[in-house]
Amino acid sequence: MLMVSSRQNPGELTDMDILSQVSAGNVDAYGKIVVRYNGRLYNFIYRFVGDRETAEDIVQETFLRAFRKRKEYRAIANFSTWLFTIAGNLAKSELRRRKRWRLFSIDRDEETDTGMDLPDVSALPDRVAESSLADVQIQQAIASLPDNYRQVILLRDVQGMSYQEISEIVDCPVGTVKSRVNRARLKLQQKLKNEGRDVGLGV
């Protein structure tokens, strides 16, 4: 039986060991991979797309794709890097799809006045359920960043990845990643300052 409960202890096996077991026919072993990266991936994607349901769908799809393509994975990069690359690409596709939909709905709104309203992200229940209002405000500030900046700052400051890992995930040189992280931090700082939000940053 496949176990994906986060309460299970993943053990001392490396990702490659687990993948070898899965390739040998032990599908249950994939549950250890899921347990190991489930939380990190979900948090990254949730902060990226700003919506729990979409984040769950994307993380599910990420694990499924990794399972289906496990024979294509080569141990050149970390398995976690590979997972975050898949998840990041799926999240970007979702954001692009949303932008297209927004454009479409705005056009319809102008013509027929029956287009859908843009959702008020600040009123989403999962935002309200978060432990601190300051966290919600920071999340909103993150959501306002351009996609490229948002992705790198989440990987760097929220996930704590190295610049090298981030450059592999976003497929950019390390120098570009450093520059993007710096700009993202400055923009985020400026955003919080402009909106006069007291989120414990002294701005």
Binding site: L2, N38, D157, V203
Partner: peptide, 30 residues
């Protein structure tokens, strides 16, 4: 401010996916 922002981002609460998520993922992998 930059140092504080960085620390704040690193200490954002870790959210957990719903129970349906685990069940759905398990059945899809199977």
């Amino acid at each position: 401010k930059m140092v504080m922002l960085r620390e704040r981002l690193g200490n954002l609460p870790e959210l957990q996916p719903s129970a349906e998520f685990e069940f759905g993922l398990r059945s899809q992998i199977l």
